[in-house]
Design a protein around this nucleic acid. Structure first.
Lengths: 175, 175
DNA sequence: CTAAGCTTTCAGAATTTATTGAAAGCATGA
DNA sequence: TCATGCTTTCAATAAATTCTGAAAGCTTAG
């Protein structure tokens, strides 16, 4: 029979694998999972021991997680060492991840596509018709995504679900 | 001034980089971009030359793209070699990518979380309270995602946008 | 000021992932 | 049947990414 620690380990390892599929490195995702499942904040040493990784690796993973806004550093008075904790609400967590991925992936892509369109438009219109059309389609796709993202971002965390539920009900009703 | 080929190359290279951030390999994403921007189907040879990659690499990238359902093989009569083309509608493309990523990333995660919950529940309820709660939260989060995904999947490609527009308008109106 | 206790940095090592290219496979047509 | 023209496979290699650990950096206490 599985012990609590074994179950935690399984979740942490799986989260790590998912992380690497998501362009987040394995360790970073593992540290995140560990903190997410931990009732209290942990210090670098504890993370090191739990995950059996080096001090340097812990330091880098934490730096990255902090820069994403997923982890916060806690100064506990009387304590010399720093403690770390993570956002515990899954919806808020999801929103943070969406925000960061948009910033790192979608925004640069939109810039690139806009640039390409501008260049194509200043070119002789004889060639590149199809390319112009397809790049414009891609651009519209991403821009629409950003629109939707912005609207959703303004909502309270878990109202997103209700919102979509409403949308689908309205749709069903009206079609 | 940039030529058409330079612009295409820029888009293809960027798409390749995005691919690797998305757990899709660089070459696979590049081949996809090349076909997406190409008015006519291309054969393996043409892809090889355009992207300056080996025959084997082209073959593997195409196999993967076909297994995702993003690329189709065309037998042109009278022609010995095979031609390849890709889904050209961006919304359909987005839906295919969503479907595949769900299958490869979300479904296994949900299974893992359900398994963990089952194991936690069959354990002594004295310890693991916090872990149980957090794993359940994660599970709910993913399951909600799947619900929404399924509802959206049933819609026509670009009605998704209108749908969300509606939802947001309803929301604004009622709050 | 120095020591102690902790964190960060980063060059090199280890690991993982992607790519090549030669060989094998497969279909067509002579 | 064999040759031709193409595709696929996969072991070896190359490239990219991640991780380690020793050294340097902070900060606080004495």
């Amino acid at each position: 029979m599985a012990t609590l620690d074994q179950i935690k380990e399984k979740v942490i390892l799986h989260w790590g694998e998912m992380g690497s599929l998501w362009g987040i490195n394995r360790t970073m995702a593992q540290v995140h999972a560990l903190l997410f499942l931990s009732d209290e904040p942990l210090c670098a040493n504890e993370i090191m021991e739990e995950l059996q990784i080096s001090r340097g690796n812990v330091s880098m993973a934490l730096r990255e997680l902090i820069s994403w806004g997923l982890v916060t550093r806690l100064h506990i008075k009387g304590e010399r060492r720093e403690y770390y904790t993570t956002e515990k609400d899954v919806w808020t967590m999801g929103r943070i991840i969406a925000r960061e991925r948009k910033k790192r992936e979608v925004d640069p892509t939109i810039n690139m596509l806009r640039e390409s369109m501008a260049e194509l438009e200043s070119m002789s219109p004889i060639e590149g018709d199809y390319e112009r059309e397809q790049i414009q389609n891609l651009l519209n796709f991403f821009e629409t995504g950003v629109e939707v993202y912005k609207d959703l971002e303004a909502q309270k965390p878990n109202s997103i679900l209700k919102l979509l539920g409403t949308a689908l009900r309205v749709k069903k009703f009206s079609s």
